[in-house]
């Protein structure tokens, strides 16, 4: 397909940006080989450190701009956990904050030209979603024992409907990691692929490249919003799933 397009004068390979390559050349890819993705995950850690640790080093009562952003960021996640899970959920706040920080940093850094979007990789989002799914399930069972099954047994529904609802609830419970991971990956991948396609047009159109460039600007602005919203969705869904573990049956 790519070769067909290339013959027509275009050279668009929108998916090429998602290829994982060893960082220091070569073709050998062992489990420990640093890759372009490793680099950008490192940059994500660096960005989070700059904002949340370097930005707050003064510990000022009257904050600087960076410290304000760090505080807003912290309070945003803190309030999200507290509002949904109550004080019982605050124990897991560091995990949620780590998750949100990682996803947001990866999403946002992926918008930098020539960067690599970590969260567009199925391996990453599936691992994250499965980790959340398993943690929620294990914490739920440890904390509540058999009462955890109340998640599937809707007390507020009429008795006759409950078995049916239980089947639906069980299916939806196990589909969660799928939707949780594919949603993030799909959003990240689609936007970047679209930008790349428009960029390919721009390369071939000469003077008229102004139109695809304008389109790229629009899509990029949209992608900035999507990057934040998807990180938020990923985090808030994690918190909501966590609520099942902490308060089963408390729908």
């Amino acid at each position: 397909m790519a070769s067909d397009v290339a013959e027509g004068g275009f050279n668009i390979q929108p998916m090429e940006q998602f290829v994982i390559k060893p960082l220091f050349g070569g073709h050998e890819l062992n489990w420990y080989t640093p890759t372009n993705m490793t680099l950008w995950m490192g940059i994500a850690i660096l960005a989070a450190t700059l904002l949340l640790i370097v930005g707050t080093r003064r510990r000022a009562i009257v904050p600087t701009r960076t410290q304000s952003i760090a505080e807003v960021f912290y309070s945003f996640v803190y309030r999200m956990v507290e509002d949904i899970n109550g004080t019982a959920g605050l124990k897991y706040f560091p995990y949620i904050l780590t998750l949100f920080t990682f996803v947001l940093a990866a999403n946002s850094l992926g918008l930098v030209p020539y960067s690599f979007t970590t969260t567009s990789q199925a391996a990453i989002t599936v691992t994250l979603a499965l980790t959340v799914f398993l943690s929620v399930t294990i914490i739920g069972i440890i904390k509540n024992g058999p009462r955890f099954l109340k998640v599937f047994w809707i007390d507020s529904a009429p008795l006759a409907l409950r078995p049916v609802l239980a089947v639906i609830e069980i299916i939806s419970y196990f589909v969660r990691p799928v939707s949780h991971s594919i949603r993030l990956m799909g959003n990240m991948m689609a936007g970047h692929a679209v930008i790349k396609v428009f960029a390919g047009f721009a390369g071939a159109l000469g003077v008229f490249a102004v139109f695809p460039v304008l389109a790229i600007m629009g899509v990029l602005a949209l992608e900035v919003i999507v990057a934040f919203i998807q990180a938020y969705v990923f985090a808030i869904l994690t918190v909501i799933y966590m609520n099942d573990a902490l308060h089963p049956g408390g729908h």
Binding site: W31, T33, P34, M41, G42, I45, T98, F102, I124, T127
Partner: peptide, 14 residues
């Protein structure tokens, strides 16, 4: 490879 580096990143970040 991806999962290994993801775990490393998350542990450091955490």
């Amino acid at each position: 490879n991806q999962i290994f580096w993801l775990v490393v990143t998350l542990v450091i970040l955490f």
